[in-house]
Amino acid sequence: MININITFEDSAKGEILTLLDKKINADGLIVERANPNQKVLTFEGEEISINDFGGVKKGSEVFIKDNLISLMKLSKEGI
């Protein structure tokens, strides 16, 4: 099967996080569902809020920010 694009609407953010076993803490940051003290990180090693949630890359589920500068760095990595 050829690679296909997998996307989600803004409305489905919360549900997608649930599918990934993640949730949002009181500060709006994305954390591990099983261990809420563990915040997920972007490929730049930063915490990420639900507002900035732009996607996930495979490979220990690295999170992607919906931000021009982050996406330019990601593009340079060549995923």
């Binding site: 694009n5 989600f8 732009g54 996607g55 890359k57 919906d66």
Partner: peptide
């Protein structure tokens, strides 16, 4: 398999 999942506008 598909390597990434993106919010539509982000993609």
């Amino acid at each position: 398999n598909e390597k990434t999942i993106f919010k539509k506008e982000t993609l």
